[in-house]
Amino acid sequence: KKVTINGVEIKFNNPEEAVKFALELAKRLNLRIEFHGDQIKIE
C-alpha cells in the first residue's frame, strides 16, 4: 500500500502504519494534518 505524504510516496504494509507515522510526524513538528484518501497533507 502506497501513501503519499506531502507529495512523497511512502510504501507501508498497512494503512494504519501510514496514519500512525503521519500523526507522529505532525505531533513532533507541531503541524496540522489532512487526510484525502491515500493522500496525507501535513503543514
Rank of each mutant, 00 (worst) to 15 (best):
K1F: 15
K1N: 11
K2P: 06
K2S: 13
K2E: 05
V3Y: 06
V3P: 05
V3A: 02
V3L: 08
V3K: 02
V3G: 03
I5Q: 02
I5V: 09
N6P: 02
N6H: 09
N6C: 15
G7H: 04
G7T: 04
G7L: 08
G7D: 04
G7E: 03
G7R: 03
V8E: 04
V8P: 02
V8R: 10
E9Q: 09
I10Q: 02
I10F: 13
K11T: 13
K11V: 14
K11D: 07
F12L: 04
F12G: 02
F12W: 05
N13G: 08
N13C: 15
N14S: 14
N14A: 06
P15N: 08
E16A: 11
E16R: 11
E16C: 15
E16D: 10
E16H: 09
E17Q: 09
E17Y: 10
E17D: 12
E17A: 11
A18I: 09
A18S: 04
A18F: 13
A18M: 09
V19G: 02
V19R: 10
K20Q: 08
K20E: 06
K20L: 09
K20N: 05
F21I: 05
F21Q: 02
A22Y: 08
A22V: 12
L23K: 05
L23M: 10
L23T: 07
L23G: 01
L23P: 00
E24S: 09
E24F: 11
E24M: 12
L25F: 08
L25M: 09
A26W: 05
A26T: 04
A26L: 10
A26F: 10
K27V: 06
K27Y: 09
K27N: 07
K27A: 12
K27T: 10
R28P: 00
R28L: 10
R28T: 05
R28S: 07
R28Q: 06
L29V: 03
L29D: 00
L29S: 02
L29P: 01
N30D: 04
N30T: 05
N30Y: 08
L31I: 09
L31G: 08
L31R: 01
L31Y: 05
R32V: 07
R32D: 02
I33A: 02
I33G: 00
E34P: 01
E34N: 06
E34S: 12
E34L: 09
E34D: 05
F35P: 01
F35S: 02
H36K: 10
H36C: 14
G37N: 08
G37T: 06
G37K: 09
D38E: 07
D38L: 07
D38K: 05
D38R: 04
D38I: 09
Q39G: 10
Q39N: 13
Q39E: 14
Q39S: 12
I40H: 02
I40Y: 02
I40F: 03
I40T: 01
K41D: 04
K41M: 12
K41V: 14
K41I: 15
K41S: 09
I42R: 01
I42N: 03
E43A: 11
E43K: 11
